[in-house]
Simulated assay, not measured.
Amino acid sequence: MAQHAPPERGARLGRAARANGSQVVSGVVLLLPGRSRFPPGAVRSLSRALARAGAEEGLVAHTVLEGSAHEAADEAVRRYGDVPVCLAGFGAGGLEALRGAGHSAVNSVLCVAPCLPEASPTDSPEPVKQLSGRQVLIVHGTNDARCDPELSFRLAARAKKANRATCRFEVHSDGHSLREHRTEVVALAMDFVLGSLFSGRYSRPVTDALAAPPPLGLRMPLASGFGRSLRG
């Protein structure tokens, strides 16, 4: 009797976060917490903040509960059609976001405190070619004892050579959860996501970081009160 492999389950997305349930969706953020200890409350708060900030543009946010970033992007396309997708990875999910950036629907990648592997001298470095043509932002606390911030700097330096639209912000004296500067991190994420998916415009700090040559644009300090300065 022939044996048939079970069908692939693909990605499972959490409930959509959106400010207006009847609005046409024009862009999707897929939040990837991964199997890390990044605080789930921080991921939820960013999801809600993004939905509110992108309400007029038709932004919807989903947390990826199961499946890879590539599978999640497939599911977003199946649900919403040909709309731009931002992969937002947290902790271990940051690596998944980077690896899934080659999906044709993905136009941007946000990595918050990414956990990256430290390659041995005999290992091949983490690939970055899939980031070409995407907007890329990495934000990392300088006191992160769980996921080495120096590894995200090295990856950003290699990514910058393949893709000029890469920048990285450092949150000085903050740890893995970025608890001390969460307001600024959320404001930075909103600025980047909305600019990447819709307007093509960013705040002056993000614009400067994208334009600056390495290492300046890869060690950009996240200023205290970043969100307040945007509202002002």
Results as ranks from 00 to 15, higher is better:
Leu116Arg: 00
Ala72Phe: 02
Arg179Gly: 14
Pro114Cys: 10
Gly225Val: 07
Glu96Phe: 02
Glu184Asp: 15
Asp123Gly: 10
Gly67Phe: 11
Ala55Asp: 07
Val29Tyr: 01
Leu137Gln: 09
Pro215Trp: 07
Val136Lys: 06
Gly225Ile: 09
Leu116Val: 08
Ala92Cys: 14
Cys111Ile: 00
Pro40Lys: 01
Ser36Phe: 05
Arg78Glu: 13
Ile138Asn: 01
Arg12Leu: 14
Ala187Lys: 00
Ala16Pro: 15
Gly175Asn: 13
Gly21Tyr: 01
Val128Gly: 02
Gly102Asn: 09
Arg228Thr: 08
Gly89Leu: 05
Glu96Asp: 15
Ser173Tyr: 14
Gly54Ser: 06
Gly41Ala: 12
His140Gly: 04
Thr63Ile: 13
Gly81Phe: 03
Arg18Cys: 04
Gly58Cys: 10
Ala165Gly: 04
Gly217Cys: 02
Arg154Ile: 00
Gly94Glu: 10
Pro114Glu: 11
Met190Tyr: 00
Pro117Ser: 10
Gly67Lys: 11
Cys115Thr: 12
Ala223Tyr: 03
Leu210Glu: 03
Leu131Pro: 07
Glu180His: 12
Pro127Ala: 09
Asp208Tyr: 04
Arg18Trp: 01
Asp191Thr: 03
Ser68Met: 06
Pro39Lys: 06
Pro117Lys: 12
Val85Lys: 04
Asp208Trp: 03
Val186Asp: 03
Cys115Ala: 15
Asp191Pro: 03
His172Thr: 06
Asp174Glu: 15
Val64Asn: 05
Met1Phe: 13
Val77Ile: 12
